[in-house]
Simulated assay, not measured.
Amino acid sequence: MTFEEAKQRPDYRFRLTGIQLLIRDIREEHLEINLDNGPLIGKAVLEIGYVDIEVNISVLGMFNEIPTYKPTIEYFTCLKTENDWEPIEYIGTGADVDWWSNRWKEELEEDMFLALNEYVESAGLSYDEPN
């Protein structure tokens, strides 16, 4: 499926859920968050049918002894069941977005689609029915 085809689906839904409030910090590569609270979850979400991809943001200081606040923006997937969404895994792909661009939102949406579509294909998942 292409990005344009995906956007035409009635079950396609892209939304920003907080990343827009962090864009200045992302650009400056310094995000002051509590290192003990874990990553910021679901700051942008793209749903297509029975799968989704979400933006989770952590900082390097969460994973080493030296407190550093450089943000790491990673993609996480979930699958829709009959009743709810179930978390699956980080897909090992970070956002490939020019955060300084005036089009960063559009770039993020397309990058999330490309990462999700690759994941769906490689994992043998379906957009159209529960997995």
Rank of each mutant, 00 (worst) to 15 (best):
97 V>S: 02
65 E>H: 11
123 A>Y: 10
113 F>N: 11
114 L>C: 12
1 M>A: 12
55 V>D: 01
8 Q>S: 10
109 E>D: 08
56 N>S: 07
64 N>C: 07
80 K>Q: 11
83 N>V: 13
41 I>A: 06
18 G>H: 05
53 I>E: 00
31 L>Y: 06
116 L>I: 05
116 L>P: 09
33 I>K: 04
50 Y>G: 00
128 D>Q: 10
19 I>L: 12
69 Y>I: 02
98 D>T: 04
72 T>M: 12
95 A>W: 13
60 L>W: 14
81 T>S: 14
6 A>G: 03
76 F>I: 04
57 I>K: 02
39 P>H: 03
120 V>A: 14
126 S>A: 15
45 V>Y: 01
23 I>H: 08
125 L>E: 06
90 Y>L: 13
37 N>C: 07
99 W>C: 01
17 T>P: 02
55 V>N: 00
35 L>I: 06
100 W>A: 14
92 G>A: 05
66 I>V: 12
73 I>R: 01
91 I>G: 04
22 L>E: 07
129 E>T: 13
22 L>H: 09
111 D>F: 03
103 R>K: 15
112 M>W: 13
80 K>E: 10
121 E>N: 15
126 S>N: 13
114 L>T: 11
47 E>C: 01
50 Y>F: 15
32 E>V: 07
11 D>W: 10
51 V>M: 07
30 H>P: 00
62 M>P: 06
13 R>V: 04
76 F>R: 11
10 P>E: 14
93 T>A: 12
41 I>Q: 14
64 N>S: 06
110 E>T: 09
36 D>C: 05
124 G>V: 07
4 E>P: 01
130 P>S: 07
60 L>I: 14
6 A>C: 04
98 D>S: 04
113 F>R: 05
41 I>N: 09
15 R>H: 09
81 T>V: 07
33 I>L: 06
22 L>V: 02
92 G>T: 10
27 R>D: 01
14 F>C: 01
9 R>L: 06
86 E>Q: 12
105 K>D: 13
123 A>Q: 15
61 G>Q: 05
92 G>V: 06
12 Y>V: 02
51 V>H: 08
124 G>I: 02
18 G>T: 06
44 A>D: 01
9 R>Q: 04
2 T>G: 09
128 D>F: 14
38 G>K: 02
87 P>L: 13
106 E>N: 12
85 W>A: 03
20 Q>P: 02
103 R>A: 13
5 E>P: 00
78 C>D: 10
47 E>V: 11
13 R>M: 08
112 M>T: 03
41 I>S: 04
17 T>L: 09
119 Y>P: 09
93 T>F: 05
98 D>V: 03
115 A>S: 15
105 K>Y: 15
85 W>M: 08
106 E>V: 11
65 E>Y: 15
47 E>Y: 02
8 Q>I: 01
99 W>Q: 00
72 T>L: 13
